[in-house]
Nucleic acid binder design. Structure first.
Lengths: 132, 132
DNA sequence: CAATAATATGCCTTGACAAGTATATGCCTG
DNA sequence: CAGGCATATACTTGTCAAGGCATATTATTG
């Protein structure tokens, strides 16, 4: 359990991260909101902490957990190499903002966001013997 | 093995995806470049295919695998909720696009950059004992 | 100091999955 | 049709992670 990818493979951990995305939370708050047992929460928080996703500050007996950008940014960096697949030149930011209801009715694009699939040559029965 | 997150948790699968990011490859080419046994490659490709990451076209006995954007885009969408963590100035741009308000395009002064919609609640409590 | 709250940790069981090996399937060439 | 190449699948095994349960740890309050 070292890589950031393995860490976020677990659904409960993703839920915790999403929860912390809004604001920091104590263990008990996470436990209640996500309906998980306390040891389970603590164990997931440990994994997240050791992987650098979160950090805790002490508040009396409570530990307040908050996000740290590092590993999430690393995931984002890895994803960057694929972004050309769905964002030709369109601003990716624009797509991420489609959650707002009132999109500005500018330049009536017909939502042709999908890539036009560059034509690949059929390459039918190409050279076979590959000297290696 | 349903979620895209679990699929990319495996290092070899990520390597395959990165390889396919440059161009499509046959199973044998992947096998050689990544130094994996052929059944291993086929099994990983199966997982990737069933999760919608890749698709194959037939070329004689070969299968040419290429990327599909869907699941990768989904990962990107999930990551979006955390981007404000490391893109401070991009966050300003985002808010600019969100509801077009006049935010200084230059980074300029390090303002508080209080988000209009995000509640960044300090949630302070437990002010009883200050000595620690 | 005792009692309690909040969190962390240890042990155990169970299940998932990755890789190795062997084999099956499909296609192509002579 | 035989033989070989390219890929897929079946079966087995070892590893490891997730969760339940009990308990330890630390801080707080009276």
């Amino acid at each position: 359990m070292e890589s950031a990818f393995e860490v976020i493979a677990e659904p409960n951990r993703r839920a915790i991260l999403s929860l912390l995305a809004s604001s920091q939370q104590s263990v008990g708050e996470i436990e209640r909101q996500l309906r998980m047992t306390q040891p389970t929460v603590s164990k997931h928080l440990r994994v997240l902490r050791e992987a650098g996703f979160v950090e805790s500050t002490v508040d009396a007996q409570r530990r307040l957990y908050h996000l740290k950008p590092g590993p999430l940014q690393e995931l984002d960096t890895w994803l960057a190499q694929f972004r050309r697949l769905w964002s030709k030149h369109l601003d990716a930011l624009e797509r991420h903002l489609d959650r707002i209801e009132q999109s500005t009715p500018e330049k009536g694009t017909a939502t042709k966001t999908n890539s036009p699939r560059t034509r690949r040559n059929p390459n039918r029965k190409a050279d076979k013997g590959e000297s290696k």
